[in-house]
Design a binder for these strands. Structure first.
Lengths: 331, 331
DNA sequence: GTGAAAGCGCTAACAA
DNA sequence: TTGTTAGCGCTTTCAC
């Protein structure tokens, strides 16, 4: 830690402390260019480093935002983290990122930590466990008490107290399903996510909407998954062994990969014997053969909206739905 | 922002400010339990939130660490970020994570920003561009001037001024190559990374060591890649069309995936007609068929060592090499 | 064991 | 236009 302060700079440049502060904060409209230069020179020669803690203590603006995600190792969240960080960088903000690892205690802890750090806004991707009936009240209390500007992302919480920027999962599912219908498939199975998780419930609603509208609904074609590989493999095997299914709408890409795997074992060819569409647009989907068509959340758009809301002084409490896009690939 | 301060807590609990501070910092050895309880109660009822900025301004300890990576979207770095964050959480530290997106200006900027934030330590994964002959001097100057405790990760910088925790790429390559030799392969090609990037150079040295020692060296089996898919596909095609190659050591998993892809196009079967080993142990390698055997950097070990060094007051400047492991899979 | 008080580095209102 | 000054909320000696 350097101990060169604004005071040293002022002395070196032969100006007052407040002049230095003004220059440093770009509020130097009324200060002659020569003075500005003198100050900047002094900063450079002294190798002055600004102390944001002191500045934020006084000004109540930390130029720091917080991001809490359920699992940073998940590529979806790391893409989001990267995206928010990039957008904030343009505005001179840094980002504290915490991954609660789907642990509710940690989630609450991190929210409080963010408050202690005086972040100017907190972007929260609520974990599924935090949104469970059991934990939701404490989550709400923590959020209310922390006094931060909260922007909820990804999942609709129905807490009705915060700005929410969520994915339109219903719409995304209709996109995927309609795509399959347009290809002429009539026997379209799906591998869902866990029950009572809103993303999966919404995707299922979208699926039902399309199959029913097209008169090809068959309840036995709905296979409940949990977004993980093991169960998806089991369900994929059951589906493929039926021999009466044309296409599968997997509610996430990981489940779609399981279909690829099981198809290989059963000597079926994805893209010929069975057609698959995924959800999430995981980067790997472009690497497998055949490349997987997948519904892609518009991460950039979501993050951009979220950051815009962070700086929006009006602070309107509302839920904004971001529509995903179907990324068509090989098949 | 709540405006309840330590002062309010003191008043509420009928004790002095310093008593509250002592309790809050766990330095309350000489304070009776009743008093401690009174303070804690007051904090709870007032919903007091500690202001870390003020605390760190005074105490010179921010309980904040910084991490700068070249690209957070890359799963390797997001795994690292998650790992360091988890380890630091145990010690009550938060982590500011910045992704410089392989942009050197941003990298320098972020280093200075971390200094301004008074982080207690900075973990830096230097970008390739930052380590180029052109930029290295400025990188060093920035690092020296920032006055932070620096811990370089991943790549050896040869700056000789900082603690470095790097991957032993030479060793990892010998592991991969020896594995192929043990399987009885004699015609082992490789797809390297970019020239003059130390990780690739070291892996090549490891490859050469093993093939030469086993008398199966053939210069024409070395195919220069760049860690990206496009070039890897071109090289993979050339290799497979030779029809005299048993096995391929791809210097990263992405290049290995390209071999899978091209093999499919040429109607060759990975695991039968051609054997592949990768490097990086990308999570996706467990999902493709056949599952890819890959050299895995020991991320946990690397991060643990790095964090240990952060708290090591002796501050010995040295380079620690972390040995990777071969993760054997399907083939 | 507890309290008073100085001051960390900075900002901003006010004065000159 | 520039300088003086009073804190921001907290830690930490040093008295009591």
């Amino acid at each position: 830690m350097s101990n060169i302060t604004i005071k040293d700079v002022a002395k070196k440049a032969n100006v007052s402390i407040s002049t230095v502060s003004l220059v440093l904060n770009g509020k130097a409209e009324n200060i002659p260019d020569v003075t500005i230069e003198k100050v900047k020179d002094a900063c450079r020669t002294l190798n002055y480093k600004r102390n944001m803690n002191a500045s934020s203590l006084k000004s109540k603006v930390s130029k720091l935002a917080g991001l809490i995600v359920p699992d940073l190792e998940n590529s979806y969240y790391s893409r989001v983290a990267s995206c928010i960080s990039t957008i904030l960088y343009e505005r001179g903000y840094s980002l504290v990122i915490s991954s609660c690892d789907n642990n509710f205690e940690k989630e609450v802890d991190y929210i409080n930590q963010m408050a202690a750090r005086q972040v100017d806004a907190l972007f929260l991707f609520p974990s599924a466990i935090g949104l469970s009936d059991k934990n939701k009240p404490l989550l709400k209390k923590t959020l209310d008490d922390c006094g931060l500007k909260i922007i909820i992302l990804d999942r609709q919480t129905f807490l009705n107290s915060y700005i929410e920027v969520v994915n339109d999962d219903f719409y995304g599912a209709t996109l995927a399903c309609q795509f399959l219908v347009n290809k002429g498939f009539k026997r379209i199975a799906c591998i869902t996510g866990p029950k009572n998780v809103s993303s999966s419930d919404d995707r299922l609603a979208g699926y039902l909407e399309v199959v029913k509208q097209n008169g090809i609904f068959d309840e036995s074609l709905i296979y409940v998954g949990d977004y993980h590989s093991e169960l998806a493999r089991i369900q994929a095997r059951l589906i493929l062994q039926r021999n009466d299914v044309d296409a599968i709408f997997a509610f996430n890409d990981l489940s779609a990969y399981a279909v690829y795997e099981v198809a290989g074992e059963l000597n079926k060819k994805v893209g010929e014997d069975i057609f698959v569409v995924g959800y999430d647009n995981n980067p790997f989907s472009a690497l497998i053969t055949p490349k997987l068509t997948s519904v892609g959340q518009n991460i950039n758009e979501m993050c951009q909206i979220a950051v815009d809301r962070m700086f929006d002084k009006r602070n309107v409490i509302e839920t904004i739905k971001v529509r995903p896009t179907l990324v068509e690939r090989d098949e």
